[in-house]
Design a protein around this nucleic acid. Structure first.
Length: 724
DNA sequence: CGAAAGGCTCTTTTT
DNA sequence: GAGCCTTTCG
């Protein structure tokens, strides 16, 4: 049987070139995932390579899971021994195994973004800086950038060339100390320490080089320097390294992803073969050409010629609405229309946006219309207070030095351990050179040479907290994860506590949902289950939970949409300041990235694309009027059809293509209106003009409609009729 | 010590 | 509009 028989010639070439370095430049929809899975299956089934000797790195856990499923089907062999996962997950595994060699305890805790921020706040305070003047988020991103270039605090300090960087250097150093005291590694440490391990321990490196005869990296355009170094080290012996990417889909530069990795690849591996995958199997020709029009404007790119055998399909729809509510309403109604016409199922449709905040208006509309939807990220399940609390308990049990978790829950539920007691504990512990938890331990044992500073009341509270955690720690050694979970709830009194807060029942439900997650680790031995669970909940990404079979419309950020595909794609917020985002305006490089983001969105679509913008949008409380996104102008006009466009743009519309609120689509003469005039609206009925404000080249009206209420409308858009 | 109220600052994207 | 922090009061 020929595993590769289903591939086109270029794909086949990419799958077969198993020895030596290989760079696959894969356009959107070109069957990239297909190539990777077939390549691995080919390695295993045809070339007889043991899965043990293969490492495949994906961008998300979900991608890893899917690849595993596909391989199980394709190779019909156990791929259990395959090393498959994200850089972070793979590095965490390696460090638990080998970290001792560079002073890392196997039971380390992984700090995610929120933990990082909270530890960073403390670090900033401890070097006597004001967290208000130096926002933790800004410092965190500087430290992250440093770590992605493998700069230690010392190394960073040497390079620092501005006052801010000197500040960062000081904070960075303290922050690393605090991490060490907590026996914790942050996200970026996972990569950096793994690279450090391999650079400093030739013996360890040698073993791993021996093992990984074949290495594959997906989404290579979004790797950063540490990640590049890691694979360079690992592939150093066999040099069978295959990287797959598309420079036009590089959208993570803010996370230190570096497109230069693709250039470096050809330099570091001069013998590398390059395969281009240019045939698109996903999209209609109109969609592909529209996307090409958008991306072609970028200067920093190699032109490439994507093509497809698919039909031209429908034009790309450009839609203007008045505000984000109407934008959302348009989306929902259009979905309903497509569904009713039998042209799509809800699950075929996705709504994409630049920022998470945009999902709110959409959600409200979906709820109001009763149309099923699924929000990919936003749920942010693991960011909920109650979920974080329980996880903090479990983290503390697993690693009692974890100061972030300890401080989070030491007084939740309230145990009478207030700020004062806490700062006493902190200074007492640090003067004795102990972790806070060790200090608690000392407090409850009789031999004290340093008298603890606490009031009897506080001492009792601390003592009973310590006793509780100790009991939980003991439990963790013998109980299954779920039993431990229940013990935590019982001993802490968390259920009663959370149920008495606002939205208590809903919060409790979330705790139970977390419990269900914990159940999935039931077959692991006690300690291992806990570590695996904690690692799982820390390294999850939002798309990981995304289930395409849910039968609902998908609401998703453009970033998360990378790698997915849908029949029908709505991109909302096609406005200057939103997409492209305002923060990219003064940086041409960032602007190019916004353009790539738009390109990623459009190329997710198989058959229909709607680019929707709102004339007015509320942003952070305020209101803004945004012009249409510059990207819209870069789509060849013959590929476009407009809906609900304002006057002056109507010429582009295929006449009568769409009338989305039942208003007569032909009434384009703008009536001259003044306060007090009677008007009729196709939707709201009759009303009276309350105010009339000029906005740009237009007028914004406030109209009181009989039996409907007061509405704000845009003159050119509302299609009002004057009633005499 | 803790709850409640008021004031402040941000809001890009995320493994 | 929300979350976070500080202040204030009981």
């Amino acid at each position: 049987m020929d595993i590769l028989s289903q591939l086109n010639p270029a794909q086949r070439q990419a799958a077969e070139a198993i020895s030596g370095p290989l760079l696959i430049l894969a356009g959107p929809g070109s069957g990239k995932t297909r190539v990777i899975t077939h390549r691995i299956a080919y390695l295993i089934k045809v070339c007889g390579v043991s899965p043990r000797h293969i490492m495949a790195v994906t961008f998300t856990n979900k991608a890893a899971r899917e690849m595993e499923e596909r391989l199980n089907r394709l190779a019909k062999a156990s791929v259990k021994e395959l090393t498959l996962g994200t850089f972070h997950a793979i590095c965490a595994r390696i460090l638990r195994q080998e970290g001792r060699a560079i002073g890392i305890t196997p039971g380390f805790t992984i700090y995610g973004r929120d933990d990082q921020i909270s530890l960073l706040k403390r670090a900033i305070q401890e070097v006597d800086l004001d967290p208000k003047q130096y926002p933790p988020a800004a410092i965190l991103s500087a430290i992250g950038a440093a770590k992605s270039q493998m700069l230690t605090p010392g190394g960073y300090a040497q390079h620092s060339s501005s006052y801010f960087e000197e500040v960062v250097a000081r904070v960075y150093e303290r922050y690393q100390q605090l991490l060490g005291q907590s026996n914790a590694l942050d996200f970026d440490d996972l990569l950096m320490k793994a690279a450090e391990l391999f650079s400093s321990q030739p013996g360890v490196l040698d073993r791993y080089q021996q093992r990984y005869q074949h290495i594959l990296v997906d989404e290579f355009q979004d790797t950063n320097l540490v990640q590049y170094q890691l694979i360079k080290l690992l592939a150093g012996k066999h040099r069978n390294i295959c990287v797959v990417g598309d420079p036009d889909q590089s959208i993570y530069s803010w996370r230190s992803a570096d497109l230069r990795n693709i250039l470096s690849f050809e330099k570091d591996y001069p013998e590398a073969r390059v395969v281009l995958l240019e045939q698109n199997y996903r999209s209609t020709r109109s969609i592909l050409e529209a996307a090409s029009g958008i991306i072609a404007v970028n200067q920093q790119r190699k032109p490439k010629k994507l093509w497809t055998d698919n039909d031209a399909g429908e034009p790309v729809n450009i839609v203007e609405t008045y505000n984000e509510q109407e934008e959302a309403q348009f989306v929902v109604r259009e979905v309903e229309r497509l569904v009713a016409a039998g042209q799509a199922k809800p699950s075929d449709c996705a709504v994409m946006y630049r920022t998470n905040a945009q999902s709110r208006a959409l959600e409200e509309a979906f709820i109001r219309y009763g149309t099923p939807y699924r929000l990919v990220a936003g749920t942010r399940f693991y960011e909920r207070r109650e979920v974080k609390d329980i996880i903090a308990y479990l983290k503390l049990i697993q690693n009692t030095r974890d100061s972030v978790s300890l401080l989070r829950i030491i007084n939740i539920p309230q145990r009478g351990i207030g700020d004062r007691t806490l700062s006493q504990l902190t200074s007492w512990a640090s003067s004795a050179n102990l972790s806070r938890y060790e200090a608690l331990q000392l407090l409850s044992s009789p031999q004290e040479d340093k008298p603890p500073p606490f009031s009897p009341h506080a001492a009792r509270a601390l003592g009973s907290f310590y006793a509780m955690v100790e009991e939980l720690v003991v439990g963790s050694r013998q109980l299954s994860l779920v039993d431990l979970f229940d013990l935590v709830i019982r001993k802490s009194g968390y259920r009663e506590y959370i149920q008495n807060t606002p939205d208590g029942e809903e919060r409790w439900e979330n705790v139970l949902e977390l419990r269900t997650v914990a159940q999935q680790y039931g077959d692991l031995p006690p300690g291992e289950g806990l570590i695996a669970f904690l690692e799982g909940v820390t390294l999850v990404s939002d798309v990981d939970g995304y289930d395409e079979s849910a039968g609902a419309v998908t609401l998703i950020t453009l970033h998360q949409a990378k790698g997915l595909e849908f029949s029908v794609v709505f991109i909302v917020g096609m406005e200057e300041g939103v997409l492209p985002h305002i923060r990219s305006f003064d940086d041409p490089g960032q602007m190019e990235e916004e353009r790539r983001l738009c390109y990623v969105g459009v190329t997710r679509a198989k058959s229909r694309v709607y680019l929707v913008r709102a004339f007015r949008r509320s942003l952070m409380g305020g209101n803004t009027v945004n012009g249409p996104s510059r990207f819209l102008a870069d789509i060849p006009s013959q590929l476009v059809s407009g809906v609900g466009l304002r006057r002056g743009e109507e010429s582009q519309i295929a006449a009568g293509a769409y009338s989305w609120d039942g208003a007569p689509a032909s009434a384009f003469d703008l009536p001259e209106l003044k306060v007090g005039d009677q008007v009729r609206h196709g939707w709201f009925g009759e009303g009276v003009v309350v105010s009339c404000q000029p906005v740009r080249d237009d007028s914004e009206l406030v109209v009181a409609f009989r039996g409907v209420g007061v509405k704000k409308l845009l003159l050119s858009f509302a299609r009002l009729e004057k009633v005499d």
